[in-house]
């Protein structure tokens, strides 16, 4: 993947280049997770309260992560690290549990089997997000764009 900046250098605290694509993919995943958890909870929450609560939690975290990536300030930068770190932890823990203790997650969540139902995007995206955040730190002084 090429990462050169074809446009004029953007101000430090403006999301630019491939970061915009990252935000778009996060937005789509947030929408997918929200849609799925809405259907699960509206249809039969009692069938699998743990898996469905987790779906809803994952959806909220994806939404917050998307917003945190858009808002480039020192505070949101920390929120972005927190939510994206939580996603990576979630996909690893739930992915492993869904394989080791399948009874716990009989109903699918976005994170089951490391996100296989979503083309493993939930596994890859946090890594890309962390890579991007590490390369584009927000300086506390210039947090207002």
């Amino acid at each position: 993947m090429t990462d050169f900046q074809s446009e004029a250098p953007a101000p430090a605290n403006r999301v630019s280049g491939i970061g915009r694509l990252l935000i778009a993919v996060y937005g789509v995943l947030a929408l997918a997770a929200t849609g799925r958890s809405f259907v699960q909870i509206a249809r039969a929450f009692n069938e699998a309260p743990l898996a469905y609560s987790l779906s809803a939690l994952a959806a909220v975290v994806y939404i917050v992560a998307t917003i945190a990536l858009v808002k480039r300030s020192a505070l949101w930068y920390r929120v972005a690290w927190g939510t994206i770190g939580f996603e990576l932890l979630g996909v690893l823990v739930v992915g492993t549990l869904s394989l080791v203790v399948p009874g716990l997650f009989q109903h699918a969540t976005v994170w089951s089997i490391y996100g296989s139902g979503y083309l493993f995007i939930p596994l890859v995206l946090p890594l890309l997000g962390m890579w991007w955040l590490a390369r584009h730190p927000v300086s506390p002084a210039g947090s207002r764009a």
Partner: peptide, 9 residues
């Protein structure tokens, strides 16, 4: 990147 985003969509 907006063009890429159209495609991803």
């Amino acid at each position: 990147w907006s063009t890429v985003i159209l495609g991803v969509t």
